[in-house]
């Protein structure tokens, strides 16, 4: 009796799998999953971009990156909550969002720059582990400070900041239809912003004089110094820039109900950022973009399978990201575009 039941269950599961496959392969569904994947990828690239910039030049794996994103989310939310009133129109809200982004970028760059000058600079001649340790300590301090301030103003540090989520314009919150596909406006906005960030950083690295300094410094910092570039100042600028980009990503996350501004956001954003950066190859910007795309698409696919087909593993979407990491490190330890030397002993 029980055996028959089990067999029936198994058959049902298999049927579900085949049906799921058929449903998944339908163009409409597939396009929807890809769009969702792209929006996730945009977020992953944005939170990882600063990390990879900093590692590429300074060789510092910045554990405080997630904390900076979290602070960016709160600051961005603060600007929005203070400026947006009940009657503010959607376009004005969007404009204010870009103002908030600029403010956050400025403030976090300043914070990042001072962290580099005061705390990390004395550690360059020590083994790389010490820089991980230091930034880990900075994370603890920043997180606890955020907890104090947030708690002081009567907000729940562990829950998402609802007031900030409420400042999102209506047309981003509702579903928009693109031909046969319907997708949330926010997802499209995220893809747009992600592409903008990638283009901006790419342009900065390849088209400006400072970008040239940075690329020269990543290649060979001693040689760059010998050619008259003030490498120490470039280090500071890059760290500030990386922190600023982390803050910008945080500002975007503040609007996304999946993430939201909360203190645990620090760890939640740090871990996928690590995965993305390592898959792509530590310190290569191109690799980070590709890594973000891979992780975003895999994440969206596994999430779809979990939601629509009777997959009994609730942990699948979350584990999938780290499984990619483990597999990627086994197959290609230095990452897709990584160089063997970087990040080793």
């Amino acid at each position: 009796m029980t055996l028959a039941l089990e067999l029936a269950q198994q058959a049902l599961l298999q049927a579900g799998f085949v049906d799921g496959l058929a449903e998944f392969a339908r163009p409409g569904t597939f396009a929807e999953v890809v769009l969702r994947g792209l929006s996730k990828a945009a977020i992953y690239v944005m939170i990882a971009a600063g990390l990879t910039l900093i590692f590429g030049l300074l060789g510092v794996l910045n554990f405080a990156h997630g904390a900076l994103t979290m602070i960016g989310a709160y600051l961005g939310g603060l600007v929005m909550v203070l400026t947006v009133a009940q009657g503010t129109g959607p376009w004005a809200r969007l404009a204010l969002f870009f103002v908030a982004m600029a403010v956050v970028f400025g403030l976090l760059s300043a914070l990042g720059g001072s962290i580099e000058v005061r705390l990390i600079r004395p550690l360059y001649d020590r083994p790389p582990i010490y820089q991980i340790l230091l930034t880990f300590g900075v994370t603890l301090v920043l997180e606890e400070l955020a907890r104090i301030v947030v708690g002081f103003y009567g907000l729940q540090p562990l829950a998402e900041w609802q007031a900030a989520l409420g400042t999102i314009p209506a047309f981003l919150e509702t579903s928009q239809s693109l031909g046969p596909v319907s997708v949330r406006g926010l997802a499209l906005f995220e893809i747009f912003l992600g592409a903008l960030t990638v283009a901006a950083i790419w342009g900065f690295l390849t088209r400006t004089r400072y970008g040239l300094f940075i690329r020269a410094g990543s290649e060979d910092s001693e040689m760059a110094e010998a050619l008259g570039i003030d490498v120490r100042r470039v280090f500071t600028v890059v760290f500030a820039l990386g922190a600023g980009v982390a803050g910008v990503a945080g500002t975007l996350l503040m609007w996304d109900p999946v993430w939201g501004a909360s203190v645990p956001l620090a760890a939640e954003s740090l871990l996928p950022a690590f995965v993305v950066v390592i898959i792509g190859g530590l310190g290569t910007f191109r690799g980070t973009v590709v890594g973000g795309l891979i992780v975003g698409l895999v994440d969206a696919t596994t999430t779809w399978w979990f939601q629509n087909v009777a997959v009994t593993w609730t942990w699948l979407p979350e584990v999938a990201i780290f499984m990619i990491l483990v597999v990627a490190l086994i197959v290609r330890p230095q990452g897709i575009y990584g160089v063997e030397e970087v990040g080793g002993h």
Binding site: L61, P128, I129, I132, L271, F274, V275, I278, L282, W315, E318, V319, F322, M323, L325, V326, L329, I330, P333, Q334, G343, G344, H345
Partner: peptide, 21 residues
């Protein structure tokens, strides 16, 4: 098979997989 930063990250990855699991 890995060293340095990569070693720290992959062990972290394994632990997080187990944590979520």
């Amino acid at each position: 098979r890995l060293t340095g930063v990569y070693f720290a990250m992959i062990t972290l990855g394994f632990a997080q997989v187990l944590y979520v699991f």
